[in-house]
């Protein structure tokens, strides 16, 4: 068997910088490679990568592999799988780390199948078992009702994706040293069968959910699109933005790009206000990392009250107007 060593992160870039999720992977990857006493590497594909590679080194990466190519969002998964599996065959990492993002969700399963190895999706914790030196993969299952810990002792490399916001992003330290290594990312074009016809970003105006300090989320209890006026107003006064559960999305009250949860955005604001939200585990998967959670729900038995710090039992139509008034007075708007 080949000698698989080290941790390889498949990084993602946005506007020429590493994403927050990639920074989180670097902090997790750092711990894993220290536990194994092996190198942490990062693969980046894009253009003019020198500066971002230096940044990655300051964040704790030992070796940055840079490939000249098109960012994931403008490329095709097929191309990325081919590139990444080639790189992995050359450098034979023990662990291959992705974020549970559009890219990780799509690439990690195909990569594992192609490398004939194991894969675990959407982990919230990764540790090295000090006795067996195997990778323990902790992942929520059954929509978040339960948590499973897996190991795959006989398979290498081990492909894993990590849920965004499950770990703190790495902090820069410019005294760190590392190496930058160019890699070839050429693939046989005749093997690419899909064609990308169109990419559409449904621009959400204002603050991005992932970066918001305050999020006010409306759920099925809002009852229709009109009710979201109150949600928007409260969010605005608090300097935050709005989110939704699956129900307003399915009902077409609000755009799906605002959905928070297992299959939507994963957020961790300082303040999360859930209004008319029952607290299904699939929704909480996207917001349980929030510092403070407030629930407003007319059902005292609603599960959301088990997951919140503060609660008001009652009709949101009666609660929100005075909440808005009080906050307005407070912030003197």
């Amino acid at each position: 068997m080949a000698d698989y060593k080290g941790v390889l992160i498949c990084g993602e870039l946005i506007e020429g910088k590493v994403t927050t999720t990639t920074k989180e992977l670097i902090s997790t990857g750092r711990k894993l490679s220290d536990g194994l006493n092996q190198l942490l590497s990062l693969l980046l594909i894009g253009q003019n990568l020198q500066e971002v590679a230096d940044e990655a080194i300051s964040l704790g990466v030992d070796k940055v592999y840079i490939g000249d190519g098109v960012p994931y969002a403008e490329s095709l998964p097929e191309r990325y799988v081919a590139i990444i599996s080639n790189v992995c065959k050359q450098i034979e990492p023990f662990i291959i780390l992705f974020g549970q993002t559009d890219m990780g969700r799509d690439i990690a399963p195909r990569l594992a199948a192609r490398l004939r190895t194991s894969v675990c999706m959407d982990c919230v914790e990764l540790t090295i078992d000090p006795d067996t030196r195997s990778l323990l993969q902790t992942k929520p299952v059954y929509g978040g009702n339960a948590v499973a810990v897996w190991a795959s002792e006989n398979y290498q490399p081990q492909v894993v994706t990590m849920r965004p916001r499950a770990s703190a992003p790495a902090e820069p330290d410019t005294s760190r040293k590392g190496e930058i290594v160019p890699v070839t990312v050429k693939v046989d074009d005749s093997k690419i069968k899909c064609k990308l016809l169109e990419t559409v970003k449904e621009e959400v105006k204002g603050i991005k959910l992932e970066e918001a300090k305050v999020i006010v989320t409306g759920g099925g209890g809002i009852g229709g699109s009109e009710g979201f006026q109150l949600i928007k107003e409260l969010a605005q006064i608090l300097g935050g933005t709005i989110g939704i559960t699956r129900v307003p999305c399915d009902e077409g009250w609000m755009p799906k790009s605002l959905e928070i949860g297992q299959t939507g955005h994963i957020v961790s604001p300082a303040l999360y206000i859930a209004v008319g939200v029952s607290g299904a585990p699939q929704h909480l998967a996207g917001c349980s990392g929030s510092k403070c959670i407030i629930a407003i729900n007319k059902d005292p038995e609603a599960h959301i009250f088990k997951e919140a710090d503060f609660g008001i039992v009652g009709d949101y139509r009666k609660a929100l107007p005075s909440l808005i008034e009080k906050c307005k007075a407070l912030f003197a708007i």
Binding site: S118, C120, L136, Q137, P140, V141, G144, N145, A146, V147, A148, V149, W150, A151, S152, E153, Y155, I293, A295, P300, F305, K306, E307, A308, D309, F310, G311, I312, V313
Partner: peptide, 17 residues
Amino acid sequence: RKLIKLFIPVRERKCEI
């Protein structure tokens, strides 16, 4: 993969109504 452990996560928050 081998399942090592399966458990129900403990909720850490106490809600003040």
